[in-house]
Amino acid sequence: LNLKQAKEEAIKELVDAGIAEKYIKLIANAKTVEGVWTLKDEILTFTV
C-alpha cells in the first residue's frame, strides 16, 4: 500500500464514521503510511 492509497482508505473510513473535516485534514497531511494508520486509529479512538 502506498501513501496515497493509505490516505484514501483512511479518509473513506473517517468519512463513513462521520468524523469532522479538521481531523480528515490531519490524515491528508500525514507523511508516512504508518503515520496515516496511527492518526486514523487515534482519531477513531478519541472521537467516536
Rank of each mutant, 00 (worst) to 15 (best):
L1V: 11
L1T: 10
L1P: 09
L1R: 10
N2L: 14
N2K: 13
L3M: 03
L3N: 01
L3K: 01
L3D: 00
K4P: 05
K4N: 08
K4M: 10
K4I: 10
K4D: 08
Q5K: 13
Q5F: 08
Q5G: 05
A6Q: 04
A6D: 01
A6K: 03
K7G: 01
K7E: 01
K7V: 07
K7C: 04
K7S: 02
E8N: 07
E8Q: 10
E9D: 10
E9F: 13
E9A: 15
A10C: 06
A10H: 00
A10M: 03
A10G: 02
A10L: 04
A10Q: 01
A10S: 03
I11F: 04
I11N: 02
I11M: 09
K12E: 03
K12D: 03
K12S: 06
K12C: 06
K12I: 05
E13I: 14
E13M: 14
E13S: 08
E13H: 08
L14R: 00
L14Y: 01
L14I: 03
L14G: 00
L14C: 04
V15K: 13
V15D: 04
V15S: 09
V15W: 08
V15P: 00
D16G: 11
D16S: 13
D16Q: 14
A17W: 09
A17H: 09
A17R: 12
G18A: 04
G18S: 04
G18W: 03
G18L: 04
G18M: 05
G18N: 06
I19R: 03
I19M: 06
I19Y: 07
A20P: 15
A20Y: 05
A20T: 07
A20M: 07
E21L: 12
E21H: 10
E21D: 10
E21N: 08
E21P: 11
E21R: 10
E21I: 10
E21S: 10
K22R: 11
Y23T: 02
Y23M: 05
Y23V: 03
I24Y: 10
I24A: 04
I24K: 03
I24E: 02
K25H: 09
K25L: 13
L26N: 03
L26V: 05
L26A: 06
I27N: 00
I27E: 00
I27D: 00
I27H: 00
I27Y: 00
I27S: 00
I27P: 00
A28H: 15
A28W: 15
A28C: 15
N29K: 11
N29A: 12
N29L: 13
N29V: 07
N29S: 12
N29C: 13
N29W: 09
N29Q: 12
A30C: 15
A30W: 02
A30G: 03
A30R: 03
A30V: 07
K31C: 10
K31L: 13
K31G: 07
T32V: 02
T32C: 03
T32K: 02
T32W: 03
T32F: 02
T32H: 03
T32E: 03
V33C: 05
V33E: 04
V33P: 05
V33M: 06
V33F: 05
V33G: 01
V33W: 04
E34T: 07
E34I: 09
E34V: 07
E34G: 06
E34S: 07
E34M: 07
G35L: 13
G35I: 12
V36D: 00
V36G: 00
V36Y: 01
V36M: 03
V36W: 01
V36S: 01
W37I: 08
W37P: 00
W37R: 10
W37K: 12
W37C: 06
W37F: 10
T38G: 08
T38H: 14
T38A: 15
T38N: 12
T38M: 14
T38F: 14
T38I: 14
T38Y: 13
L39G: 01
L39C: 06
L39I: 10
K40M: 13
K40C: 07
K40P: 00
K40D: 01
K40F: 14
K40V: 15
K40R: 14
D41R: 12
D41Y: 13
D41T: 11
D41P: 01
D41V: 12
E42R: 15
E42C: 15
E42T: 09
E42V: 11
E42I: 15
E42P: 00
E42G: 05
I43L: 11
I43V: 05
I43H: 01
I43A: 06
I43R: 00
I43Q: 00
L44I: 07
L44S: 03
L44A: 04
L44M: 09
L44V: 05
L44W: 05
L44K: 05
T45F: 11
T45V: 07
T45G: 14
T45C: 13
F46V: 07
F46R: 11
F46E: 06
F46D: 06
F46H: 13
F46C: 13
F46Y: 12
F46M: 14
T47K: 10
T47L: 15
T47W: 15
T47N: 12
T47I: 14
T47E: 08
T47D: 07
T47H: 15
T47R: 11
V48F: 12
V48D: 10
V48S: 13
V48Y: 08
